[in-house]
Write a protein that binds this DNA or RNA. Structure first.
Lengths: 204, 204
DNA sequence: TAGATTGTTAATCGATTAACAATC
DNA sequence: TAGATTGTTAATCGATTAACAATC
């Protein structure tokens, strides 16, 4: 499970980029918290955890904050990512190419067992699964996105780990089982909608 | 923010459906926890919170568990959902029609300001934004999905709330601001990948 | 019955919030 | 300087885990 603290830091980074584009050079915890939807104390605490300090009177300098955050998240290095399953969601992510994912994160290849999908025109080249090893090694990929149907997700997951993948973002609606040293982030889009429906009914 | 307890209950529901299809009629907290990736104690505790009880020796009956969960999440009623922004992600979700979202949750209409997107062939009809009121009222919609670019997301959000929407699933990479009575679930896909990259580097 | 499983209470853990001294 | 803001410590809150009596 991804820590809230980490998610918020990444959110702060987005907000800071926005403030920078608006021409700001310094910012207070209050402004950043307001933009990120959290309290100023939470912002300072989050920074404190990672040893990030500001200026007692003048808040934080946006530029240096961004540099520190980029270091924490290794955004100064290139991270190649692959995607398995060129269905609707997979194709959508591929069409963003490296735009949906952050700075210096690149979707270098897609995979699908269906030859028709392999010829499909998307933002990234699509290969059959027997090319996995070759491309993972060639592009030095350690992170993969799974967008296959739930029945085949665990099998694909095992296959990816076997080929050297260490981190997985899974969109298939099952909880993937993997060794503890593998980072698995399960996202279930239907659950996110159903939870909203639940809370709406709670209000009544 | 969605409680973990609620997310897990929805996950249990998926697992139970799977077990049912495999022909099982009863299940122990251990089996369910194993499938959902949590401890048996966590399963029992989650059930306990909602007053769900099993049988001291024979575990839980799958069929009645599913009935109770469906009641908790109002899955016996129809929930119509709309989607604003027919870009890559929006189109992908629309193409699933009501398959990506749960039982009795239907994507009834998409919206986009671009007339070209309005004619695009997708699983759902696409309208200009001035039809929002008409369709929200006609289909009695209270939940919307936002898949527009970040610059227009807050404006779309305000517009939706103004038209009577009470719950929002937001894929735009900003934290939407909304009154407390509005349920907002912000999902940032790039953050999910970047968090994995972070944890992978932590291991080194 | 004996053994296994539930349901709940208590203990622990972690995360958020509050408070406030330090200080720019 | 006075006032505002940070950074950290302590307090609170909530969620998870452990323990175990009840019991099928």
């Amino acid at each position: 499970m991804i820590k809230s603290n980490i998610k918020r830091l990444l959110q702060y980074r987005l907000c800071l980029t926005k403030f920078k584009e608006l021409g700001y050079s310094r910012i207070f915890s209050y402004n950043l918290g307001n933009e990120a939807g959290v309290s100023p104390e939470q912002v300072r605490k989050d920074f404190s955890i990672h040893g990030i300090t500001g200026n007692k009177k003048a808040g934080y300098e946006i530029e240096s904050l961004l540099i520190i955050l980029n270091q924490i998240f290794r955004m100064d290095e290139i991270h190649n990512v692959i995607l398995v399953g060129m269905g609707h969601i997979g194709t959508a992510l591929a069409n963003y190419n490296n735009h949906f994912i952050g700075q210096n994160v690149y979707l270098v290849a897609g995979f699908d067992m269906d030859p028709a999908k392999q010829n499909k025109k998307t933002g990234i080249p699509v290969f059959p699964l027997d090319k996995l090893s070759e491309l993972i090694e060639g592009f030095q990929v350690s992170t993969a996105i799974i967008t296959v149907p739930p029945v085949s997700a665990q099998e694909v997951c095992n296959n990816l780990i076997d080929k050297g993948i260490k981190g997985i973002l899974n969109f298939a609606p099952i909880v993937l089982k993997a060794p503890k040293n593998i980072i698995v982030n399960n996202i279930n889009l239907s659950t996110e909608i159903e939870a909203i429906v639940y809370y709406l009914n709670q209000q009544k």
